[in-house]
């Protein structure tokens, strides 16, 4: 699920791959300017594809395998969970 919408995926596919195949390109908003970002390097380095996955912030969609029942959301701004704040 992404923002409440069911997303199909193949076994072993990354979250980033499944979401892009479903037409999603806006994954997060940056903490500084609030601009929209989506996957870029697709190999874990650029940190542009960050999502909130099952309540955890800053999860790299390109490095996370899609699984049934996952709840994913856009991340708006900086990681909050590790700062001791609720999203």
């Amino acid at each position: 699920m992404f923002e409440g919408r069911a997303i199909p995926f193949r076994p072993g596919q990354s979250l980033a791959g499944a979401l892009m195949a479903a037409g999603v390109v806006h994954f997060r908003r940056t903490p500084v300017s609030g601009s929209e970002r989506g996957p870029w390097c697709l190999m874990g380095i650029c940190y542009e594809c960050l999502l909130r996955v099952d309540g955890s912030d800053n999860q790299r969609a390109c490095m996370t395998a899609a699984r049934p029942g996952m709840k994913t959301e856009r991340q708006d701004g900086a990681r909050l969970d590790a700062a001791g704040e609720q999203a």
């Binding site: 903490p31 940190y47 800053n58 900086a78 990681r79 909050l80 590790a82 700062a83 001791g84 704040e85």
Partner: peptide, 8 residues
């Protein structure tokens, strides 16, 4: 060093 986190 960790990933980027909201200021705390």
């Amino acid at each position: 060093v960790t990933d980027r986190i909201a200021p705390f």
